[in-house]
Design a protein around this nucleic acid. Structure first.
Lengths: 115, 115
DNA sequence: ATTAATAGTTTCCAAAAGTAACTAATATTA
DNA sequence: TAATATTAGTTACTTTTGGAAACTATTAAT
């Protein structure tokens, strides 16, 4: 596992948020799961450059936190589907605003260069 | 420096956002600078458990990205003040929502336990 | 008997974060 | 005069996290 997942209740809310999404991949995984459940392999394809190891690590952490649900089917080859819980879904509007922010500051950079 | 700061313009907006705030400290630094400019030492005190090394690394990166401004005064002992740019300020409402989200999912956990 | 598919795991290496001691410049204090 | 205090870092070293590539288990199809 990547992290020990020990959240200190005394942490301020922003620190607590960063304990959850303060890493390179978590938000991207949640974002990609926005529309529908996806299998492990589909996630690996959609999320450019993530390694399988990190993907499994982060999915385990997200499952422990109750942000993602893992559903495994007893088939061969195996099928495992990941989807967002209510908690995870609640993060989506914020992630959309983050996208808007990053696009916005990119534009600011460009107009700055044009002066 | 912590990262190479090479943003690929082909990155999707969420990936781009995570290149900026997808780490443990960046958002916390911005959040703490919300109200007013702070000196290096004040930042180190307010941000619980951050190391001076990581603080300087992240401040340099934030300055390079145009999210934070560093103003140094030729005094002894030295005085250096950090403050948010417009870009940085624009992130604040999103960080506030993240705080609300983390408080919200904490409550969800508690009501779950009470069932 | 071999190959294909899927969802991981494992091993080994690189990058980022954490710790603690150190530095430079000057003003104050003993 | 020498030692001490203040501030904003830097440096060297260790630990933790992330990344690449090869490997595994299971069973159906060829």
């Amino acid at each position: 596992m990547t992290r020990k997942l020990i959240d200190n209740p005394n942490d301020c809310p922003i620190t607590h948020s960063m304990n959850i999404i303060g890493n390179k991949w978590t938000s991207i995984i949640i974002y990609v799961l926005a529309d529908r459940k996806l299998r492990f392999g589909e996630l690996a394809i959609r999320i450019d450059k993530i390694s399988r190891k990190v993907l499994t690590d982060q999915l385990k952490e997200l499952e422990l936190r109750g942000i993602v649900v893992r559903k495994s089917y007893a088939e061969t080859p195996p099928r495992v589907e990941y989807s967002l819980t209510k908690k995870g879904t609640k993060l989506l509007p914020i992630l959309n605003q983050l996208c808007a922010w990053s696009k916005d500051i990119e534009l600011e950079l460009i107009s700055e260069q044009m002066k």
